[in-house]
């Protein structure tokens, strides 16, 4: 399977790309043949699809501005709120809440595993949901992992589309939600329709509160990480764009 994916990847890089990209690859190959005899053993490995020349980013101006907006929201609103919240609420409870949120999102993972023909994973997700909803007290504890060593199999509709060969399209930074691309942003709609919140009769305002709570709780379990990642960047926007696209490619491969 891996070999097959690798083959697909090579063929898309070599033949499937636009003429200019193709030219780019050819140029590199030619250059390698001429200058590089045995010098750079690492080059092949690091020239690939996430090369910044091939990330499609026509919205770069908007994306940069939106990244700045999100950064502002994070630094001045979300992060301080999450910090305060983490002082008040013990970690074990925050972890439990995070588990419970994850648990009720089960339909998304189930449907997308099935759509990608990963039936065993879909089955394991079902077992996880049943075990955690009962023994795990409404999903507060990940009993399925600790007692039965059942791993999570996160899949979303963006990954499903990627599985069937849909390309990511232009990179788009979403307000509040952060880096995404056309394929993944569109995929939020069907995934959202599978959530319990969407199917319950909560008002728009109530579901907004619930979502906010979800993000505050999540951030409280990842304090300091954003700042640390930000420090690694030479230029923040292309850096997190790269992180996002590399991560998605990996998730779709799996």
């Amino acid at each position: 399977m891996k070999l097959f994916l690798f083959f697909i990847f090579i063929t898309t890089v070599l033949f499937g790309s636009t003429p200019s990209n193709n030219q780019h690859v050819k140029n590199i190959n030619q250059k390698n043949l001429i200058q590089d005899d045995f010098d750079d053993e690492f080059d092949d490995e690091f020239i690939d699809e996430t090369d910044e020349t091939t990330i499609y980013d026509p919205l770069i101006k908007y994306n940069r501005a939106m990244t700045q907006f999100n950064d502002f929201v994070f630094i001045y609103i979300l992060n301080p709120t999450a910090k305060g919240y983490s002082y008040v609420v013990p970690k074990a409870l925050r972890k439990g809440i995070s588990n419970a949120f994850h648990n009720i999102a089960f339909p998304i993972r189930f449907v997308n595993n099935v759509l990608q023909l990963k039936f065993q994973n879909a089955g394991e997700e079902t077992s996880r949901f049943l075990i955690n909803s009962t023994f795990g007290v409404f999903g507060l504890f990940d009993a399925a992992y600790y007692t039965f060593k059942l791993d999570e199999h996160n899949e979303d509709f963006g990954q499903t589309l990627g599985f069937y060969g849909v390309k990511s399209g232009p990179h788009i930074v979403l307000p509040f939600l952060g880096p995404s691309n056309l394929r993944d942003a569109f995929s939020l709609v069907p995934d959202n329709m599978l959530t319990l919140v969407y199917n319950s009769n909560l008002t728009y305002e109530e579901s907004l509160y619930l979502n906010t709570f979800y993000y505050v709780n999540k951030t409280s379990l990842h304090l300091g990480e954003y700042e640390s990642i930000k420090k690694d960047a030479i230029d923040f926007y292309p850096f997190i764009r790269d992180l996002y696209e590399q991560k998605r490619i990996k998730e779709i491969e799996e």
Binding site: F46, P238, Q246, K247, K250
Partner: peptide, 22 residues
């Protein structure tokens, strides 16, 4: 060790892309 990959993100690749763009 010449590279570390976390959740599919290669540390070296991110630096390489950044430096190239810079």
């Amino acid at each position: 060790i010449y590279d570390v990959e976390m959740i599919g993100v290669s540390i070296m690749k991110t630096y390489r892309n950044q430096f190239k763009e810079f």
